[in-house]
Design a protein around this nucleic acid. Structure first.
Length: 569
RNA sequence: GGCGUUAUAGCUCAGUUGGUUAGAGCGAACGACUCAUAAUCGUUAGGUCGGUGGUUCAAGUCCACCUAACGCCA
């Protein structure tokens, strides 16, 4: 039994995420977690909300709430949506937790002790009206180059010229519009990533089994231009982890917090700590190689935009501490999912948001389509037409209908119990051999996190059942040899249970309905297919389940396409 | 402008270390069946692998250049 630590990139607290966010990390991570558990591994599946930073402050202000309250509410909203999608986190934490505060401060202290922190003095714009420093993008003004009047402090969107906030003519706060600004000196901490470049480079080079998407992004950041740059890890904000050197105050850093990118990945560890505090478990046995984590395999899931932080910044934090923290063993990264010819856009409200998706269809439809089209090798595209066709064909016609035809046939010709009699012939032997081959292939793809291939293989396993029925035609057999038909249907009924077990990582709700219909709690994995197809013995009572997957109609997709094309308020 | 990823049948995608007639699903046409959510099963027709030029006995699969899309950076 292996020990698998799985983390999904943590979604930002600000607002409800769209489906692109889901398929890029949480959903495939859940698929893998469920599969590992089904195979008997000990799994720790962690996710959280990323709560610190300016966008959260601004969103809270807009909502008219204190930021802590806003984050607490949004955390519950996101946790609720995750639960409805069937995301089986062992813990869904919060980066604003005391555990994360303590660990973040600890890491900063260790890095400082190792000489990897620089204190840098820089100039930054302060807004008297807002009572705060303004990050570059929260300053607007007239571009000195093209006179565009909405240039941002870092760049003019009109002429693309790079700017410093001090370049702007008539600068103003993007938050309040105030022009009562001044440039102040402020001191910040920098993580000297450049000093860890060789260690990081060597480490990345050793990961020959990682997806190209992951390593190519990492190598680009390592070697591009002047190479890996040092990064500021503090900000002049209120909302965040207060800067401390371990448990000690940090002279000159009063009133400052760590920058979100520094504390967010540490939340993976902290969330496990949160889990332990809640359950009495041992979080260090998952994260400290000197305290039992040396046999843990750590797998991270994320979208490609998060790769630099997970291949370089977070490992720099871990390595730099010179303590025995677990480094990631495998990074599975995903490209983007596009929506009908363009990008999903949170800011423009374009595409389908997670709560909306669940309002119109059960989670399994989304899980299946998104996973079977996961953007593994390139960006993928969501269209309503493809979604409707694929979901209807795969879920309703191939799997759902298989369950219907078998259970209803049995009920009408025999009873709502597994029929007795008959013995296997050549066709059954052949089917078992074929299923065995396909299931072993499915296991391989799942273990390798080849999401699309896994889905295709699973679908093939479903199809094999229909092929068998079609070829053996128990409805014909029944007229001349009822015992043989009984055997065929007994096998088919058992196949439903096997399908439920195999399909659970993809479509947990439907899987549960199938098991419930088959009136069994037996979720044992079909290591031995022959034996697995005898799990439900003759005489075992069952009930014909409701339609597993109702078909999506043309009217529905037409309506949805229109509803989600526009913007969300 | 730099870097990266991608470019394979109408659509969505597979194609291992270069090697016999380039694969799958969907869609299409035709056929079989009637237990089932007008579901299922089978057969067939469709690509010479973005373009050009190389390396090689042999390239979708390696190299160069070009084009296009997307992304990152500047």
């Amino acid at each position: 039994m292996a020990r698998i630590l799985i983390t999904s990139a943590i979604p930002y607290i600000n607002g409800i995420k769209h489906l692109g966010n889901l398929v890029g990390s949480q959903l495939p991570a859940d698929l893998y977690a469920r599969y590992c558990r089904a195979r008997g591994d000990e799994v720790m599946f962690i996710c959280a909300t990323d709560e610190h930073g300016t966008p959260a402050e601004l969103a809270a202000k807009k909502a008219g709430k204190p930021v802590a309250e806003f984050c607490a509410e949004m955390h519950e909203v996101q946790a609720g949506i995750g639960a409805r999608f069937g995301l089986s986190f062992d813990h869904f934490g919060r980066s604003s937790s005391p555990q994360n505060r303590e660990l973040t401060q600890h890491f900063a202290g260790r890095l400082a002790d190792e000489g990897l922190i620089d204190e840098v003095s820089e100039k930054q714009v302060y807004s008297h009206t807002d009572g705060r420093f303004l990050p570059d993008r929260y300053i607007e003004g007239t571009c000195p180059n093209c006179s565009y009047d909405k240039a941002r402090g870092d760049q003019c969107e009109n002429c693309t010229k790079q700017l410093d906030p001090t370049d702007l003519i008539e600068p103003r706060s993007a938050i309040s519009g105030s022009t009562d600004l001044e440039v102040r000196d402020t001191k910040h901490l920098y993580l000297k990533q450049s000093q860890l470049k060789d260690r990081l480079s060597e480490w990345i080079d050793s990961k020959t089994d990682w997806p190209v998407l992951t390593t190519s992004i990492a190598k680009k950041w390592l070697h591009d231009g002047d190479g890996l740059q040092d990064r500021g890890i503090t900000r002049d904000l209120d909302w965040g982890v207060p800067v401390k050197r371990g448990t000690e105050d940090w002279p000159g850093m009063e009133g400052k917090v760590f920058y979100v990118w520094f504390d967010a990945p540490i939340e993976y560890i902290a969330a496990t700590h949160e889990w332990a505090d809640k359950t009495g478990g041992d979080w260090e046995s998952w994260w400290r190689t000197d305290k039992g984590a040396d046999d843990v395999r750590y797998v991270q899931f994320m979208g490609k935009d998060n790769v630099p932080f997970h291949t370089l910044s977070f490992p720099a934090t871990i390595m730099g501490s010179n303590e025995h923290w677990k480094l990631v063993d495998y990074i599975k990264s995903f490209n983007y999912l596009n929506y009908d010819g363009g990008q999903f856009s949170t800011s423009q409200g374009r595409g389908i948001f997670q709560d909306q998706a669940l309002d119109i269809l059960p989670a399994d439809y989304w899980r299946w389509w998104l996973l079977s089209h996961a953007p593994e090798n390139s960006d993928a595209e969501f269209t309503w037409e493809a979604f409707q066709t694929d979901a209807n064909k795969d879920l309703a016609d191939v799997l759902g209908n298989f369950v219907s035809r078998v259970t209803k046939f049995c009920r009408s010709k025999f009873s709502e119990a597994v029929p007795e009699g008959g013995t296997y012939g050549e066709a059954e032997t052949k089917l078992i051999a074929e299923l065995t081959t396909k299931i072993r292939a499915y296991e391989t793809h799942m273990a390798e996190m080849e999401v699309r291939k896994s889905a295709a293989e699973l679908r093939g396993i479903w199809v094999a059942g229909n092929e068998y029925l079609q070829a053996e035609a128990p409805w014909s057999t029944f007229k001349t040899d009822p015992e043989k038909a009984a055997m065929q249907i007994r096998l088919a009924l058992n196949l439903i249970r096997v399908y439920a077990v195999l399909s659970a990582p993809f479509i947990p709700e439907a899987s549960a309905k199938m098991l419930s219909g088959m009136n069994t709690l037996d979720t044992s994995w079909p290591d031995d297919v022959d034996a697995a197809l005898k799990a439900l013995p003759a005489g075992h009572a069952f009930t014909v389940p409701e339609v597993l997957f109702a078909k999506i109609t043309d009217e529905q997709t037409a309506e949805w396409a229109e509803r989600f094309a526009g913007t969300r308020d």
